Simulated scan of single mutants.
Amino acid sequence: MSTDAFLKPDITITQTDANRLMLLAEKNESTISSVVEVLYAELDRARVVPDEAISSDVIRMGSYARFSGNSGPSRQITLVYPGKADIALDRLSILTPIGVALIGLSKGQSMDWQTRDGRIQRLVVEAVTPPVEKA
């Protein structure tokens, strides 16, 4: 199924996240091309804003988010880069289909995404807590 058929809400990404995610996508193009292809599409359609202009309810790298879907109860995760991913600690990699679907969404938005086995799922963002800034 083409990703164009999915429900695609407006998304917003910080300039720093956009730059870092583009580099991450370029590094991983040959190993996980299907996820990277979707990440490129999300980066292309995102509204990129200065880091300080992002709303606190938008999921960005390091954000803590709670969302529900049609595949079970609400989940709570922190969206992280692959090296920090640990599903046992609810740290979800951006280089997963659901991680790519979450980036740039804000509280109340929903998004269709495709699982690795081709099923279409919908998620709804219930809450977002911005990342803790490091001093």
Rank of each mutant, 00 (worst) to 15 (best):
E126Q: 13
R45F: 14
S56F: 01
I98E: 14
G99P: 04
S56E: 12
M61D: 05
T16S: 07
Q76L: 11
D90G: 02
A53S: 14
K8Q: 15
D17M: 02
L79R: 05
T96I: 12
A46I: 07
L21Y: 02
A101T: 10
V35D: 08
L79H: 02
S93C: 11
L23R: 10
P9D: 03
N28F: 10
V80A: 08
V124G: 04
Q114M: 09
S56V: 04
L43T: 04
I59T: 05
L79K: 00
S56M: 06
V35R: 00
L123H: 02
R75S: 11
Q114L: 01
I11Y: 00
A88F: 06
M22R: 10
S74K: 15
S74A: 14
K27P: 03
P9C: 00
I103C: 03
A101V: 05
L95E: 09
K107N: 05
M22W: 11
V100M: 02
V58R: 08
L92T: 01
R45G: 15
E126K: 10
A25V: 10
V35C: 02
L24G: 03
L95H: 01
D112I: 01
D57F: 03
S30C: 13
L102S: 08
S71F: 15
D57A: 03
L92C: 04
S106A: 07
N19W: 01
Q109Y: 02
V124F: 11
R45K: 14
D10G: 07
E29R: 15
Q109L: 09
D10C: 04
S106F: 00
I120D: 00
A46D: 07
G69F: 14
A53G: 07
L79W: 02
L102M: 12
E37L: 04
V100T: 14
A53R: 06
R60Y: 04
R20D: 08
E52R: 10
D112R: 04
S68D: 12
D51M: 06
S106R: 12
P50K: 11
M111F: 06
S106N: 07
D10H: 12
P9A: 01
G69E: 03
L123K: 00
R20H: 05
L105S: 03
L21T: 01
D112V: 06
I59R: 00
M61V: 10
L21P: 02
S56G: 09
D51W: 07
L89H: 12
R20L: 03
L92A: 03
A85S: 09
K84E: 13
R122L: 08
S74N: 14
P50C: 09
L43K: 03
D57S: 03
T96E: 08
V49K: 06
S74M: 14
T12R: 10
D57E: 06
W113G: 05
S93P: 10
N28L: 09
L24D: 05
V35T: 14
S33A: 15
N28W: 13
P50V: 13
G69Q: 02
S56A: 07
I11N: 04
